[in-house]
Structures are given as C-alpha cells and as structure tokens.
Design a protein around this nucleic acid. Structure first.
Length: 451
RNA sequence: GUGGGCGUGGCCUAGUUGGCUAAGGCGUCAGAUUGUGGCUCUGAAGAUCGUGGGUUCGAAUCCCAUCGUCCACCCCA
C-alpha cells in the first residue's frame, strides 16, 4: 500500500492540544464578552451559492474566493462573515428585531498567497449592529468599548483602537476637487506609516496626478496628530466648506464624546486621519486596532459603519456598524512573540486517574466522584506499566495524578500526586477534589501576558 | 496575479571546485528493580537527498522542467 505523506496546506493553521486549548480560551472570552453586550450568536453555512457571495462582483473578492462546482450547483466558500450576514438579514428581516445585534466566530476562506500571519483559512470574530432604516451614532461609540473589553479580557494592554470617519475624508477631498481620485488617494495615504510621507507625496504626484498644491494640502491634513481633542479642534478649521465633512466631524465628535462613559481610556484610543479601511462599503466611522509593540503585523481588528448592508438582496435600507477581529492572525502573532501566558493551564484535564488494580471499577467510581465536584478528570484505561502511566500524565501536562491501588482501596482513600512538586497525599475522593481545586484556583488567569 | 529565495529522516541542520555504506541534534520507540514521570545513560527504528528528465565512469552537489514552500508587491484579519 502506498503511504501518502501527511501535510497541512500552506495558509491553514493546525495546533497541538496545548495551543488549541489556549485558542479556545480566547474564543470563550470573545463569546462571553460579545454576549455581555447583548449580541446574539449566529452561525451560517461555510458554503453558499456563489451568486450570493459574489453579488457585489468584481475586485479582490472575485479573485480570492474559493469557487467550485458540484453537479449543477455553482458554490463558493465564504470569504468573510459580512456578506453571509447580509443574506441572512435580508432573508429573515421580517422575523428579526431591529436593531439586530449578532456575533459570529467562524472560519472564512481566501484563496490568496499565504504569508506570515496571512492565512487562507482563518477565524473572524465579528459583531454587527443592523438598524432598520436608521441607526444612531451612539452604536458607533459603543463599538470601541467592546473592542477594548475583548482585548483587555485577553490580557493585552498595549493596544490602540484607531478611529476615523469616511465622511471627513470624502468631504475633505471634495474641497480639493479630488472626489474622483479619493479611492487612490486614500489607499496611498493609508500606507503613510509604512512608507513615509516623502514616498506618499511622490505617489500622489506621479501616480495619482495631483498638483504640488493638492499634495501639500493632503500631507498637511494627514499630519494632524495629537490628543483626540487636539485633532478635533484642528479639524474644526476645515468646517463650512463641505456638508459631508461637517457631518463626518459631528459624528466623530459624537463617538469620542461618549468614550469615557463607555469606559475606554484615552490611551487605548486615537483619532487617526490616515485610516481608510475597506474602501468599498464603509460610509462613516471606521476602526482599526493595532498592537503598539507590534505595528508590523498591521490591523488585528477592523470595521466601520455602512449604510446599506443588504442592498444586493432586498430593497430595504439596512444601515449597520460592525467590526471583525482576525483571531487566527492575532493568535499566531501572540504565540510567535511568546506572549501566550505560560501560567495558563493548557492540559486537557485537571487530574488523571490511574487504576492499579485488575478490577477498574473502583477507579471508575473515583474518577466520577472527583468529576462531579466540577473538575476535569480523565481515566487512564490502558493496561501498561506504571512507569508508562506516569510518563503519560507527565506528557499530557495534567497538574495532578490520582493513584488507586490495593493499599488505597483498603483504606478507602486514593493517592493524589502533585505532578509539579512531586508531593503525594492520601485522601478521600472528596478531599482530593477539594485539594486539587484549591491548588488550581485559576479561573481568571489571562490568556496573554505582556512583558 | 507579478517578482525573488529555498526544498536533505516527523522537526532543525551538516555535507555543494561532482567521488566510497549521506553526518549530527531534537523528537519517537525499547531497556537501565514489573507502585512513581521530568534528568541521565544504553540501544533501535526512521531519508528512493521534493518529483521527472538530462550531462557524467559517477549527482544531495551541475543543467532543464515541474511541484511545493517562504518573502516582497497587490490586497487584506
């Protein structure tokens, strides 16, 4: 028989158990945080009709989507969670209560060249709030609060939620009569941090065909930095020249005004005029979150406000605001940087019960007794040498091994061995559970430990 | 999609002016008192040198093709 060499495709992440446990921990934090803000869980199919996923048509989506035929069906794998959400809302809008808040943590697929931190299959953790006809700006102010809670929940401190407003940008380009070129300009300006202002200027002049004066105006505009109050006051100087701009500024003020009420510290939030993000459908506030100590990895969470979620599927006007956390990338980078908390328990069980008698019944009962006290307990079922049983406990990384042999059974007790210290005690099942619980008592250990 | 680097046991690497049975480390497995893991010691298994073709007396090493992979660009989480 031919052996097929096992391999995992490039751009797909596969983890060993201890890492997977840490990953799941992050997912749990996301779920509980999202749920705590009243978002409902949603799951949609990984595969959809290609027509639906490609409704928007053209561009990168068409190039990157995994598309295939099965019989006569033209199918595709979802490349994000927003388009499936649009379909879902369009399909069920008569049954949903608006504003509709949902979260979804699922895999998405993109057939592009994989690179460090860039995957072909990866998890997105999305939240969106969809309004029926209207959606108040207050929703846009709440989003950073949720991002903040999630990242703090992971154990991160050095991150920054950067915010801009698309209306400010389009309004500003209207003032310069550059409305048609705004897409190219924004894409260029977005690279400011990466390539520097001289390079940006060169591209604006040569590739975008701007005049020296226009380029100068733009560079001066995106150079506006400082505290939120300082940036906003600098922006006030541009008012009265574009209705769009003025409206964008008003929205930006509304978002920043409620930050402290929502509990977001100023140090984790910044108005940044270079942010453009997802050029096609965002129409108002846009968000991008970066790790301050690892700017090279780019954005780990981004999103914004859009006016018409489901326009391709129904006539109804459904404005919304949402964000997406690139969980796979975030995890990959944190792991690579060695920031995953080594203190976080990553064994599949709290204790491993090792039966040492021919009759396994007492051990089975013991395992169940300890398990019923709320602990994760694995029963070792193999008939191997004691040495090998211990080696297994060691390799699994379980903090405790519970031994049950003739002696213990005769005394009505079991031997509880702390694998880290080597200390061993003879205890009853209840005492054992209590002992282990006290030793672990680790419910609030963060996943990430920043240095 | 465009441009560049690299492919040697499961993993990391040595070996490239072509030359004897391809070397080492990690890991795996088995032993060193069959009720005690990590450490140490001993031993074992495991590679058609990515694949196909070519040059040559002889190819891991040179040439061509192909696949894979990584990096940059594009774009993005």
């Amino acid at each position: 028989m031919d052996i097929i060499k096992p391999r995992t495709l490039s751009g797909f992440m596969e983890l060993l158990p201890d890492k997977q446990i840490r990953f799941e921990k992050m997912v749990e934090i996301l779920r509980s945080t999202y749920a705590s803000y009243g978002f409902a869980p949603l799951d949609t199919p990984a595969i959809e009709d290609a027509q639906i996923l490609l409704a928007k048509g053209g561009g990168e989506t068409e190039k990157q989507i995994y598309r295939f035929q099965k019989g006569d069906s033209d199918l595709a794998l979802r490349f994000d969670l927003t388009v499936p959400l649009a379909k879902y809302v369009a399909l069920h809008c008569n049954d949903l209560a608006f504003p509709f808040r949902r979260f979804q943590i699922s895999k998405v697929y993109r057939g592009e060249r994989a690179q460090r931190g860039r995957f072909r299959e990866f998890y997105q953790a999305d939240i969106d709030i969809i309004g029926d006809g209207k959606l108040d700006v207050l929703n846009e102010a709440e989003i950073p609060a949720i991002i903040y809670k999630v990242f703090k929940g992971f154990g991160l401190n050095r991150f920054q939620i950067r915010v801009n407003n698309r209306k400010i940008l389009t309004g500003f380009y209207e003032m310069l009569n550059l409305h048609e070129k705004s897409g190219d300009i924004m894409r260029t300006v977005d690279k400011l941090d990466k390539i520097g202002s001289d390079k940006v200027k060169t591209i604006l002049l040569e590739d975008c065909g701007l005049t020296e004066e226009q380029a100068g105006e733009i560079l001066r505009f995106i150079a506006i930095r400082g505290t939120n109050a300082e940036v906003i006051s600098a922006l006030e100087g541009y008012t009265g020249r574009s209705e769009t701009f003025d409206q964008g500024l008003a929205e930006l003020k509304a978002v920043t005004a409620n930050l402290s009420a929502f509990g977001v510290p100023e140090e984790n939030f910044a108005v940044d005029l270079t942010i453009a993000r997802g050029l096609d459908y965002y129409t108002g506030t846009v968000y991008e979150t970066t790790l301050l100590d690892h700017p090279e990895i780019g954005s780990v969470c981004s999103g914004g406000r859009y006016d018409n979620l489901a326009g391709y599927y129904i006539e109804k006007q459904l404005p919304g605001v949402g964000i997406s956390i690139g969980l796979t990338r975030l995890f990959y980078v944190l792991d690579e940087q060695g920031l995953l908390n080594p203190e976080l328990p990553s064994a599949p069980a709290d204790a491993l019960v090792l039966p040492m008698t021919q009759d396994a019944a007492p051990a089975i009962a013991l395992a169940e007794a300890v398990r019923s006290q709320g602990l994760k307990v694995q029963l070792y079922c193999e008939q191997k040498k004691f040495k090998q049983k211990m080696a297994y406990a060691d390799k699994l990384g379980v903090p405790f091994a519970i031994l049950l042999g003739e002696d213990e059974i005769a005394e009505g007790k079991c031997s509880v061995k702390d694998m880290r210290s080597g200390q061993q005690l003879k205890l009853t099942a209840e005492e054992a559970a209590e002992h282990i619980k006290n030793a672990l008592h680790c419910s609030n250990i963060p996943v990430i430990l920043e240095r």
